[in-house]
């Protein structure tokens, strides 16, 4: 735990995130993804999924030019990889990340992907097929940064990709919460007010291979939670350190799980 706190401090002081933020986004949406993607070279890299917004997500927040999938990009992505690099032996890229759509062939070279704001997510048929193939082949997807009614859109979109699938609520006993850190209290970390949550507190839901809880988890959804927010703002001091630490613990566990199961 001390090491994690130290790492958070390191990240807080790091210039890389600011560099990436200014250089790659500057709070604007990237348009030419190939030019900023680091691609695949055998090493782990953060992958953020982009999608067309079904609810006019552009301009919903921030500067008015940011699509919902890009929330916290790229700072959260870089910070997360820096933490993984500092704490584990995974040796990921810390100098860039990737943005792919679900029907992008290059997505297949990265079996862990992150989606922000799935409440605004809509898919073409090709993307639905791409997601299905990705997950059934062995990919793992993390849904983050959504609350309340967003859940229903997420469920609906996932049904398009995997009609047979169903989300199952996970408890702290699931291996994903013990893959690196032992996260015993799933309710400690909160991003939204209880009134904004469907259940009054964050919950974690998963889709299992063949809908069998004994098998591999192929997707996890941080329902009524926003880990990416903590990852992004860990350098600013605007979020409580305990919460930030907890958000990183979830993130590290997700990556270790996605790399090993």
């Amino acid at each position: 735990m001390k090491k994690l706190i130290l790492c958070v401090v390191v990240v807080l002081a790091g210039a890389a995130a600011g560099y990436a933020q200014d250089r790659l986004l500057g709070r604007r949406t990237p348009q030419n993804y190939d030019s900023i993607n680091i691609g695949y070279d055998g090493r782990l890299a953060f992958v953020r999924l982009r999608f067309a917004s079904g609810f006019g997500g552009f301009g919903r927040r921030g500067s008015g030019r940011e699509p919902p999938w890009a929330h916290d990009y790229p700072t959260a992505d870089i910070h997360m990889m820096k933490i993984v690099n500092e704490l584990t032996t995974a040796g990921p890229h810390v100098d860039g990340s990737n943005i792919y759509s679900l029907d992008d062939p290059d997505l297949m070279n990265h079996p862990i992907a992150y989606m922000s704001e799935p409440g605004f997510w809509s898919m073409s048929d090709d993307e639905a097929r791409g997601l299905r193939t990705y997950l059934l082949k062995g990919g793992f997807i993390v849904f983050d940064d959504f609350r309340g009614q967003d859940w229903f859109n997420l469920e609906e979109q996932m049904k398009r990709a995997l009609p047979e699938s169903r989300f199952v609520e996970l408890d702290a006993g699931h291996p994903i919460f013990n893959s690196f850190f032992e996260i015993k209290n799933l309710g400690f970390l909160q991003s939204y007010n209880a009134s904004q949550s469907a259940t009054g507190h964050p919950t974690y839901w998963g889709i299992f291979e063949d809908n069998d809880p004994k098998k591999r988890l192929i997707a996890i959804a941080n329902r009524d939670n926003d880990l990416g927010e903590y990852w992004e703002y860990s350098e600013t001091g605007t979020e409580p350190v305990d919460f930030t630490n907890e958000a990183y613990k979830f993130g590290v566990n997700y990556f270790i799980y996605g790399l090993t199961r």
Binding site: L44, T88, T89, A90, G91, P111, G138, S179, F180, R216, F255, I256, G258, L259, T260, R261
Partner: peptide, 27 residues
């Protein structure tokens, strides 16, 4: 190292009832 090779190796042989792979993953 935690890496995808380990995950997919295990997945590839998970249905093989004659192989028991015990993995020690240094994280």
């Amino acid at each position: 190292d935690p890496r995808f090779e380990m995950k997919f190796l295990r997945q590839a042989v998970k249905e093989d009832k004659n192989l028991e792979v015990v993995t020690l993953q240094r994280t």
